[in-house]
């Protein structure tokens, strides 16, 4: 079974690499935001440059998880290749796992330009251990966004998936304080911030890269979002299966 997971991952990743527009998009936005927001405003102070870099890494990962995954799932569902794969002697697991692993690989790639900009153009500083922890936290922190991406992809048509995922992406990212620090946002937005999943995710990353203590409310909200998104993704997947393969 693990052989098949590897094979599915390999070919999905190959497909992704050969049509790299999604990868380019998820790498471009955080890199551009890095140059626009972080380098000029937070670049000089090592602590704030480091935490802002973490925010941009998560911003890129969210794009790959939420937008990339939802669009690729919705598009694949429209292709007759999808039902054909179901006639092969494999359950749904290899394809599903392949999708998640491919998305994670895409996330890690999208992080590279952000890290390069951070290293060369800001005062950000991090130890290799903290960097590894931070990447681990990034993968954990993006789980609810992958689940949301799966939910949208299984519930919506490709066109709707593009729209819905983009509309969800920016407000969630901004409200979590990934683009600009919460302190510069209006008060009522600050009070909402603890309840969006991006807040818990970024606080996890800050705990990993800077040893800051995350707020319990944000972490609890992150856990609740993860459970809700998992339930929604499972529901949408079953509904899609039931509609097409019952």
């Amino acid at each position: 079974m693990s052989d098949l997971i590897l094979i599915h991952t390999r070919y999905q990743f190959l497909e992704q690499l050969r049509v790299p527009i999604a990868l380019v998009a998820s790498a471009f936005f955080p890199a551009a935001a890095m140059l626009a927001f972080v380098v000029p405003f937070a670049g000089a102070d090592p602590a704030s440059a480091t935490s802002a870099t973490a925010g941009m890494m998560l911003f890129g990962a969210m794009s790959a998880a939420l937008i990339g995954l939802s669009i690729s799932v919705a598009q694949d569902r429209e292709q007759p290749w999808d039902p054909y794969l179901r006639t092969l002697p494999a359950g749904p697991l290899p394809r599903f796992a392949g999708r998640i692993l491919t998305t994670m690989a895409g996330m890690l790639l999208s992080v590279v330009p952000v890290l390069l900009i951070s290293a060369f153009l800001t005062a950000a500083a991090i130890s290799p251990l903290r960097l590894a922890l931070g990447i681990g936290a990034l993968l954990v922190g993006s789980v609810p966004f992958m689940l949301m991406g799966l939910f949208i992809g299984y519930a919506a048509s490709p066109k709707a998936a593009i729209a819905v995922s983009q509309v969800a992406y920016f407000p969630i990212a901004a409200l979590g304080g990934l683009l600009v620090p919460l302190e510069v946002m209006p008060g009522f937005l600050q009070s909402l911030a603890s309840f969006v999943p991006s807040r818990g995710a970024i606080e996890l990353m800050w705990a990993a890269v800077a040893g800051r203590t995350p707020s319990p409310v944000s972490l609890a909200a992150f856990a609740v979002w993860t459970i809700l998104a998992a339930a929604a993704a499972t529901w949408a997947y079953r509904r899609d299966e039931g509609r097409r393969f019952s």
Binding site: L14, E15, V19, Q79, W81, Y84
Partner: peptide, 11 residues
């Protein structure tokens, strides 16, 4: 046989 219209284009 899969439908030939759905074969992954980039592979």
């Amino acid at each position: 046989t899969p439908q030939e219209t759905g074969l992954p284009e980039s592979l």
